[in-house]
Simulated scan of single mutants.
Amino acid sequence: MRERCANTWVCLAITFIGTSIALVGIICWREFILNDKETDARITRENLIKYYPTIYGIYKTNISYEQILLKGANRLTPTTQYFNPNTNCSFDCLPNGGKRISEPDYNRASVYNHACCQSTQVFTTPQFFQNINGVVREILQFNDSKLMIIMPQIFFQEECRQAKHCTGCICHYIDQATSAVVYKPGYTSATAIYISQLEIDIFYLHGCCKCINLIKRAP
C-alpha cells in the first residue's frame, strides 16, 4: 500500500514538473518568439497603418492629406478680442498699386499680405530633415514600386518674406513641432526592411509667419 502511494506521489510530482516546464515554454514562446515575429513585421502599407495610425491612418480613406492641410490653413477666423494700445497702430507699407499691405489680401495662389509680411503656403515631402536636437534624420517616404503604392509624409509650412522699406514690424517664423516616422540609426531606405527598424522623431518646421512689432525706445 505504501509503495502504491509513493508511486502515486512520484507520478503527481513528475506531472506537475512537466506541466510547469510546458507553461514556462509557452510563456517564453509568447514573450520572445511571438514578439519577435510581431516586431519584425515588414514595412508595408498595412503595417505602417497598424503601427503608426496617427500618421498613416489617413491613407485608409479617400481623403487627400494635402486637402486637409490646405483647408485648415485657409480657414481664417477673425479674432473677437481687442485691447487698447498706448499709441495708434498703423503701417506705412504702400506697394506699387498704392494699396496698403496691412489690408487683407488673399488669392487662389494662397498668398497672404499682412502688415509688413507676405506669406505663401507650401507642402513638402523631405527625405532628410533636422530634428529638434540638430541631428539630420532620414524620413520614411514609403514607395512600393511593385504594388504602385505611395504613402508620403507631407508637411505644411509657410514661406515668409518681408516688404522692403517697411519699418512697422519684423517678419518672423513661428516654429511648430511635428512628429514623423524615421529610420533608426544604422538603417536607411536602402537597408531597412522591418517595422522594428523605424521610430518616431520630433522636428521643428516653419509655421505661421508673424509680424512682430518693433519696440521704439525713447531718445
Score class of each variant (00 low, 15 high):
residue 73 A to E: 12
residue 106 Y to D: 03
residue 175 D to E: 12
residue 110 S to V: 04
residue 153 Q to A: 08
residue 123 F to N: 05
residue 3 E to H: 09
residue 48 L to Y: 00
residue 1 M to P: 02
residue 167 T to F: 09
residue 104 P to G: 10
residue 1 M to R: 12
residue 163 A to I: 05
residue 8 T to L: 15
residue 204 Y to C: 03
residue 11 C to H: 05
residue 182 V to P: 01
residue 29 W to H: 15
residue 9 W to R: 12
residue 164 K to H: 07
residue 36 D to I: 01
residue 141 Q to Y: 05
residue 22 A to T: 12
residue 114 H to P: 00
residue 2 R to D: 09
residue 15 T to L: 15
residue 145 S to R: 13
residue 88 N to I: 04
residue 18 G to N: 06
residue 107 N to V: 05
residue 126 P to S: 08
residue 173 Y to K: 06
residue 217 R to I: 08
residue 177 A to G: 01
residue 209 C to L: 09
residue 34 L to A: 12
residue 48 L to N: 02
residue 193 I to L: 08
residue 21 I to Y: 12
residue 113 N to R: 14
residue 48 L to H: 01
residue 23 L to P: 00
residue 195 I to F: 03
residue 218 A to H: 10
residue 115 A to Q: 07
residue 119 S to W: 01
residue 100 R to C: 03
residue 14 I to S: 11
residue 2 R to V: 11
residue 20 S to M: 14
residue 86 N to Y: 07
residue 47 N to P: 01
residue 202 I to N: 13
residue 193 I to A: 03
residue 32 F to L: 14
residue 204 Y to S: 13
residue 153 Q to G: 07
residue 98 G to A: 06
residue 139 I to D: 02
residue 93 C to E: 05
residue 13 A to T: 14
residue 88 N to W: 01
residue 166 C to I: 06
residue 112 Y to P: 00
residue 14 I to V: 15
residue 64 S to Y: 03
residue 126 P to D: 06
residue 179 S to Y: 03
residue 217 R to M: 08
residue 84 N to T: 14
residue 159 E to T: 11
residue 189 S to G: 12
residue 62 N to Y: 04
residue 105 D to A: 11
residue 198 L to P: 02
residue 83 F to S: 12
residue 20 S to K: 04
residue 67 Q to W: 04
residue 41 A to S: 14
residue 157 Q to Y: 00
residue 8 T to C: 11
residue 110 S to L: 08
residue 218 A to L: 11
residue 211 C to L: 04
residue 64 S to L: 09
residue 34 L to H: 12
residue 182 V to Q: 00
residue 16 F to I: 14
residue 216 K to T: 10
residue 125 T to Q: 14
residue 46 E to I: 07
residue 155 F to Q: 05
residue 75 R to G: 00
residue 186 G to S: 07
residue 33 I to T: 04
